[in-house]
């Protein structure tokens, strides 16, 4: 499971505007609805349901909201770089400015977990995050995100 299997250049938002966690999730749900053809409301509800278990703000300005939807044909990712950091109830209580949304079909099971782990591992890399923060074009962000680990190490 690689990042390139999850996102397309269209699913990268270089300058998302939001002032709160709720607004950010709403905006992301709207964009995800455009991509997947599902209802905006259904996506938003699933994300909110997951946030109730515990925040997906994993610290260092990163959030990885995620959820499962029954009539999704495949895994969908959506990456957003926020114009201004927002509060996200993160575990380190720091504001969030990079969000990776991951939606999975009901039947995905292990693939869902693998994809989430892949995203989590990518965004734990501080140098990757620095580069993402310093890039403001969708193409540039997409290239950074889908760069294979091997070529990054080189």
């Amino acid at each position: 499971m690689e990042i390139v299997d999850l996102i397309s250049p269209e699913s990268v938002v270089p300058n998302l505007r939001a002032t709160s966690k709720k607004q950010a999730l709403q905006e992301l749900a709207r964009r995800a609805a455009e991509l997947t053809g599902l209802h905006e409301r259904a996506i938003f509800d699933v994300l909110l349901e997951r946030e109730r278990l515990g925040t997906t703000g994993v610290g260092n300005g990163i959030a990885i909201p995620h959820g499962k939807l029954s009539n999704l044909p495949r895994l969908y990712g959506l990456f957003a770089r926020l114009e201004k950091p927002i509060g996200f109830d993160s575990i380190d209580e720091q504001p969030v400015d990079l969000i990776f949304l991951l939606l999975a079909p009901e039947s995905a099971g292990a693939d869902h977990l693998k994809a989430l782990a892949r995203v989590s591992r990518l965004l734990r890399d501080k140098t990757v995050c620095e580069k993402l923060r310093g890039t403001d074009s969708a193409e540039g962000l997409y290239a950074l995100l889908t760069e294979s680990p091997a070529s990054r190490a080189a």
């Binding site: 997906t56 610290g59 869902h112």
Partner: peptide, 28 residues
Amino acid sequence: EGATEASLYGDFAIGPDATLKALRESYG
């Protein structure tokens, strides 16, 4: 909250009051 933290304490944090049922549904 660095990489070592994540490997020892996991990728995401949830509250102790979350039910196993909810977790199962969220992650299949």
